[in-house]
């Protein structure tokens, strides 16, 4: 596939405080190629949003971004500041958020905001930029775009606003689109429209997409590869198909098995499988495997050192000492018939 669009090596986000730093994102490495969607999945607080923000240099103090490198199309962007960072954002990397309203300016029309995004990076006439804004609205399937450019954000539904955010993101043909829970606040009928739109953009323009979600259904239908995060760390990375067919990390298995749906056998409800307990707080992160306190496969060794990422298959990796045992245990098998 050639050189990846994005190549992240050892990315961490720490928060300094008295008594030692808290590590919210812990040594994350991953690549995304052109025309590929990498999903990051995991429970709330596991560091998904911070990872996205760190890529764009958007972590505010007391947060601190560290890492070996973050290469975008071969160029290291880690540690860029000021004007160089600003030009990068919206030019080669664009981001859309769960709540478009927080990213949109309520006193500007959507047309003005798209034009602003275009002219910030490109020296073209206002009229040309306006025409481009209209065609971008058309591209994100907003009906009657000539009239709509004059609307203010509060005139629009949540789904429409997210389309506008995508239009702004596309204004400069970014190489990488980071979408942080882009449909979590939307109804399912609108969610499928937005995700189909992103998928189509990827196919048409070869944009690399980083899709952050907590929904394995979204992962399944809209990503090519998936990185599972737990407590700030990558615990498993596989092709989407492999991960859902044969999840290896006990946490991934637990996530898949805990999904409700299709749990009735001959009209009788079977019990949902739970992951006992909850995610450890950053201040109480254990030395070894972060999942140890909730894991049914745990042994003493798991608590001593952080389990290394072990390669599996062509381009997968799993951070667990007991994959073989987990693989052998059929009772924890994934329910791939569920939705």
């Amino acid at each position: 596939m050639g050189e990846p669009v994005l190549s992240v090596d050892g990315l961490s986000v720490r928060f300094d405080r008295k008594g030692g730093a808290l590590t919210a994102v812990d040594g994350l490495s991953f690549d995304i190629s052109a025309g590929e969607t990498l999903a990051i999945v995991g429970e709330s607080g596991c560091g998904k949003s911070l990872t996205a923000l760190a890529l764009l240099g958007l972590v505010a103090a007391p947060g601190r971004i560290e890492g070996r490198s973050v290469k975008l199309q071969g160029r290291d962007i880690l540690g860029l500041e000021g004007e160089a960072l600003r030009r990068l954002r919206g030019n080669r990397i664009a981001m859309i958020f769960q709540e478009p309203m927080t990213a949109l300016n309520p006193v500007l029309t959507i047309g003005e905001q798209i034009i602003e995004a275009i002219t910030a990076h490109e020296d073209i006439s206002h009229q040309k930029a306006r025409d481009r804004a209209v065609s971008l609205l058309d591209r994100v399937r907003i009906a009657d775009p000539r009239r709509r450019v004059n609307d203010y954000p509060h005139h629009l539904s949540g789904g429409m606003r997210q389309r506008v955010m995508i239009a702004i993101a596309l204004a400069c043909n970014p190489a990488l689109l980071v979408a942080d829970e882009p449909t979590t606040a939307l109804d399912v009928t609108i969610q499928s429209q937005i995700l189909e739109l992103l998928d189509q953009i990827k196919r048409e323009s070869g944009t690399a997409i980083l899709l952050i979600t907590h929904d394995l259904g979204v992962v399944s239908e809209y990503s090519d590869r998936v990185l599972v995060m737990y407590a700030g760390r990558k615990v498993e990375e596989r092709t989407t198909r492999d991960l859902l067919k044969s999840p290896l990390h006990p946490y991934t298995r637990g996530l898949i098995a805990a999904r409700p749906g299709r749990h009735h056998v001959n009209g009788l409800r079977t019990r949902l499988s739970e992951i006992p307990g909850m995610v450890p707080s950053l201040a109480e992160m254990p030395h070894g495997c972060g999942f140890a306190a909730r894991c049914s496969f745990v042994v003493d060794a798991c608590r001593i050192a952080r389990p290394p990422l072990i390669p599996v298959g062509a381009d997968g990796a799993v951070a667990c000492l007991r994959i073989e045992e987990a693989r052998a245990s059929e009772h924890a098998a994934a329910r791939c018939d569920a939705y």
């Binding site: 399912v188 009928t189 995700l195 979204v218 399944s220 239908e221 791939c336 018939d337 569920a338 939705y339």
Partner: peptide, 26 residues
């Protein structure tokens, strides 16, 4: 039916699933 079809599923085999997507907004 449209609601059911809008839910992203995790059944892996069925990649070419035909959807009855609902058009437009509420």
């Amino acid at each position: 039916r449209a609601l059911f079809d809008s839910i992203p599923r995790i059944d892996t085999g069925d990649l070419g699933r035909r959807r009855h997507m609902v058009q437009g907004d509420l």
